[in-house]
Structures are given as C-alpha cells and as structure tokens.
Amino acid sequence: MKSIIRYLLSSFLLFIVVTGNAQEDNSLKKGLRIGIDLSPIVLMGFDPGRVGVAIAMDYEFKKNFFGVIEGGWLDYNIDHPDYNYQLNGIYALVGTDYNFLKQESRVDHDIFFVGIRYGASSFQQQTDNITYTNYWGTFEDTYESQHLFGQWAEITGGLKVELYFAKNVFIGWTLRAKILISGKNNDILQPYVIPGYGNTEKNLKFGLSWFVAYRIPFKE
C-alpha cells in the first residue's frame, strides 16, 4: 500500500514538472494547492474516540482540469462497557476535478467543480474485553488484530473560493458520493469504518468535507 502511494505521488510530481515546462495559458497563475480538511475536527466533536487528519493537494494540469491527491489517517477507539474496539489506518485518494465556473476576470481562481476519485485504505482492527451477559452468566471474547484493505470510488462536486483579502488562500467544501468496492466483507469481523470511506454500514453514501487551503504559486 505504501509503495502505491509513493508511486502515485512521484508520478504526480513528475506530471507537475512536465506541464510546468510546457507552453501554458498564462492568464492565470499556476500553483500547487494544499489544503486541510476541517471535517475530522468537527466529527471528533461528535465522537471523541475518532481522531483523524485529512489533507488534499490539487494542481491544474490543463485549463479547468485539476489532478487531485488526498490522504489521511484515522485512529478510532470505542470504549464501551461491554467491549473495546480499536481501528487505525491510512488512506489515499487520487482523481480529477473539472471546473465549469467561467473566469470572470483574469485573476479569478474560484472553481466550482465535479470530479471522480479512486480511494484505498490500509488499516487494522481489533477488539478485546468483549463481555456477553445473559441468563447463563457472563462470557468473554476477543478478536485478534487483523490487517485489512479497502477500496472505494467517489464522485465529487464542490466549490473552492479564493479569499479576496488573502491571496492564494482558499476555502471551500466538497460533497462526495462514495461507492464501496471492497474491504467490508470479512469472515471474522466486518470493520466498523474504513479510513477515508467512513462507516461501512452502507455501500453507497454521501459525505461532506470542508477545508482551508493554500496555493503555492510557481514562478512564471
């Protein structure tokens, strides 16, 4: 899994170098945009056991087309009287966004986009201290640590707006339709969440992320 991420990252960076040197439309500045997703922080407010980080990078490699890489990790702990559940892992998404907002002026960098993503996660889960209590008494159980892999696809849409008072700083939101491909079915124990995808109860679901991003401008 880690080698896949490294391969994608290096081909992405290579792509940037290649297109940076090509003859491009000079009306808008080029830059690599790096953002941090604020929704894990909000989700942590609802569920303190859920700690995570999500970042996104995108680059306009062709007019109105953005190459996107996202990634992050998740550390999920449920501390319940009858069981302790632990899950942690990393994930990455690659994809493309298409902007269909016409530039109103030559320096207007706002985009309203739709896009697609492929996502994958490498994670592990375990449960211990499971207790069942019924008429017959109290019984204990444990699930050993399992190393798992999940994949999904996303269709995205969203808005990224450059702050008028802070050049190169963007805020925005992304609405995602996620389709789970694999990672849920498991003879031993179905994972409760897959990092990057979320709760595995449904194979099709919606998610929302909002973020703050900074665009590192490249020299013309």
Binding site: S39, F46, L101, L159, V161, W173, L208, W210
Partner: peptide, 21 residues
C-alpha cells in the same frame, strides 16, 4: 456567483452534515 453560492450552500450543507451524523 461565488458570493451567492458560498454562504447559502455552506449553510445548507452544514445542515445536511449535521443531520447525517
């Protein structure tokens, strides 16, 4: 357009997100 879209939709989507939690 961006001024219209951003706060209104952001609010809508926050509602969607909160209700989906």
């Amino acid at each position: 357009i961006k001024l219209f879209l951003n706060p209104f939709i952001a609010f809508l989507l926050i509602m969607v997100m909160v209700s989906s939690c």
